[in-house]
């Protein structure tokens, strides 16, 4: 018998005008793992999250989260989830401290828990006296992270969580994510930044045009992931190509007498998706 599931969907579909949306999503996220959910903007990541939180009603299919059906479980289920939306819109007329008080009350979180998270992220607590509308994007994002983490939920649903964060705060945030995983919590991390998912996730799912194209272990993905190789050779203009396969094969390709310099980087999401879609999706 496999591990219990934190998220399970079958045939989950939500279509919008123009045929866009989410199509027939079958997904299983195990408890205790960090699941990276990768896709370009408009691929269906946020739609999936909205469906998982019952913020959007599906056209077809079924979803259950933490063993409870999403539809009809009301607030009880959401109390067990920490959520950070991608387009975070905190109540701008309130002061930071008032926003924390409101959500502490709604989630029944312990006093001072959100402030502790904010301190970890390097947020100046004196800024909580200011109205949220005066905050920078990064400060708002940190406040959103604190709201999602303050009640130590069983499941974290984080949609593009590092938007607007500087590298230092981003590192602190990723450390927080690893810590909650070490306590057995589940993290569903949606992003279009491949490196971020690679650095934290156990498994990753690729969504493209509303369809889940691939679910893979990150270690397996690293092996399979196409790489963008840029070369400079003597007397030739710079060249670049996308490479996928055995790394030793790449080394053999690079071993040329006129090679001056080379750089290997993960391929862009665009290139990866093109590979997956052209080369046939595997699940």
């Amino acid at each position: 018998m496999g591990k219990p599931l934190a998220i399970e969907t079958s045939g989950l579909t939500a279509l919008f005008s123009g045929g866009q949306g989410l199509k027939n999503l079958d997904l299983a996220v195990e408890r205790g793992e960090i699941f990276g959910f990768l896709g370009q903007n408009g691929a269906g990541k946020t739609t999936t999250i909205r469906l998982l939180l019952d913020l959007l009603r599906p056209d077809a299919g079924h979803a259950s989260v933490l063993g409870m059906p999403v539809r009809g479980s009301g607030g009880e289920l959401r109390r067990r989830i920490g959520f950070l939306p991608s387009d975070l819109a905190l109540l701008p007329d309130l002061r930071g401290a008032e926003v924390l008080a409101l959500f502490r009350g709604l989630y029944g979180a312990p006093l001072g828990a959100a402030e502790a998270v904010l301190e970890r992220l390097g947020f100046l607590l004196s800024a909580l006296r200011r109205r949220v509308r005066t905050y920078s994007t990064g400060m708002r994002q940190m406040l959103g992270i604190a709201l999602a983490f303050q009640h130590d939920p069983e499941l974290y649903i984080l949609d593009e969580p590092t938007t607007g964060l500087d590298p230092v705060v981003r590192a602190s945030f990723l450390q927080l994510v690893r810590e909650v995983k070490s306590r057995g919590r589940t993290v569903f991390l949606s992003s279009h930044v491949l490196a971020e998912i690679e650095a934290t996730a156990d498994r990753v799912g690729f969504i493209f045009a509303g369809e889940l194209k691939l679910v893979s272990e990150v270690s397996e993905l690293r092996r399979r992931l196409p790489k963008r190789v840029e070369l400079r050779r003597l007397g030739r203009p710079p060249e670049s190509f996308v490479f996928e396969g055995d790394p030793r094969e790449l080394l053999r390709k690079l071993d040329q007498p006129d090679l001056l310099d080379f750089e290997v980087a993960p391929a862009s999401l665009d290139e990866i998706f093109r590979r997956f879609t052209e080369g046939g999706a595997s699940r």
């Binding site: 939180l53 959401r78 109390r79 939306p85 819109a89 709604l106 959103g144 709201l147």
Partner: peptide, 20 residues
Amino acid sequence: LERERGGLYLLMASPITRTR
């Protein structure tokens, strides 16, 4: 206004239901 600017989305993602 909160629906328009997204604040309601965050509130409704919390344990409160639409009815409440």
